[in-house]
Design a protein around this nucleic acid. Structure first.
Lengths: 197, 197
DNA sequence: TCTTGTATACCGACTAGTGAATGTACACAA
DNA sequence: TTGTGTACATTCACTAGTCGGTATACAAGA
């Protein structure tokens, strides 16, 4: 049983990532992933139990890099939390304009697997989204904003809405509009200044 | 060439609607749709040029009923626009709790076809979403709210975010949270009372 | 006789997954 | 140094079935 850090396993996941994200999990055959990885399907099935297992592994491998990218955009922006969050949306709008952008891999996979709510890949996606929401809530709380959990959830809703809307309209204005709304909601949670101090 | 109101064509679309929504367009074969409609695949191909054509027809048939349902929920609720919009979200949360609920058919189809941005079904979906946004903007404007178009777009973003998030977490709390945020954004657009009148 | 609609039967390509054999690296013994 | 056992890793060839789409025939109504 090869471990999670096995280099061949990694090569397969890299190939799967490119193909699944570009074409969608249902439109990519296991043969195609194996060929992209430069090995045979039988070898792929040595490293993964099934296609479903491979799909879950593909999303699991995206979890941390994705969170790091969001956090990087947040931290790189100067200013208050409203500007920092809006910077995430602006960066998303920028990358979403690229023709290779095909939405959020987690959400698209959940949409493709909507008929199988217990699918392991959906659980991985749910955990990723929960991680992001939790990170966001912590950032909001650390900056003293009111109702940090509610606020984080609202931002998540706007962001996932931006992903979906962008996918159907292919118009990045929706992403910017979501960022603006998020900034407004954040500013509404700035605690009143205490003149006594 | 059969017309759009042809009863056989309607039977096929009804069958396609049930299957495509329940399983996803990629997981349903043309054979399965034909069988559900009680006819052969060859007959289906007499009425529709291709599976892609059938997918677009399926979404097109959902456009008006979907808008009418939203408008019905909006109109049935007593109170101001904030309460009326929140009622849409509450009704969505209610139906989304049903195990047969599988998200928004338009968004799910767009996610499945993300690799084909020009696909006719995506254009149909984009038009439907634009229709909804436009209706919402009119309702907001008719009630004298400020920035009705921006407001409508923000509500749409929250709603599509609710659809996506619900699909991955299967937790209707997200839909209610989106409804609450929408109500807050609406109230922030109530024009200041003019004491002089 | 021409048009509309339906059915049977089929095509070639592709699908996820597997059986059986082969190759390879390394440990350990002679 | 050489031989051998073993577990890991990989390949080829295959199964059994599904896919979207079509060639052909036929039946009924105008």
């Amino acid at each position: 049983m090869p471990d999670a850090l096995n280099p061949t396993r990694k090569r397969i996941i890299d190939a799967a990532t490119k193909l699944f994200y570009a074409e969608g999990i249902g439109r990519v055959s296991v043969d195609a992933v194996a060929e992209k990885a430069g090995l045979t399907k039988r070898t792929l099935y040595y490293h993964f139990q099934s296609k479903d297992d491979l799909i879950a592994a593909y999303l699991d491998a995206r979890d941390q890099p994705n969170l790091k990218q969001m956090a990087g955009w947040f931290e790189s922006e100067e200013g208050g939390p409203d500007r920092k969050v809006q910077a995430i949306f602006s960066n998303l709008a920028r990358v979403a304009r690229h023709p290779k952008w095909k939405g959020c891999g987690f959400l698209r996979t959940a949409a493709e697997l909507a008929a199988m709510p217990g699918h392991p890949a959906i659980k991985v996606g749910a955990r990723h989204k929960a991680n992001f929401e939790s990170w966001l809530a912590d950032e909001m709380a650390n900056r003293g904003l009111l109702e940090p959990k509610t606020l984080a959830r609202e931002i998540v809703l706007l962001m996932d809405g931006a992903f979906s809307t962008m996918l159907i309209h292919r118009n990045a204005d929706y992403v910017e509009a979501a960022g603006h709304a998020a900034a407004v909601l954040i500013r509404s949670r700035v605690p009143p200044a205490d003149a006594a101090n």
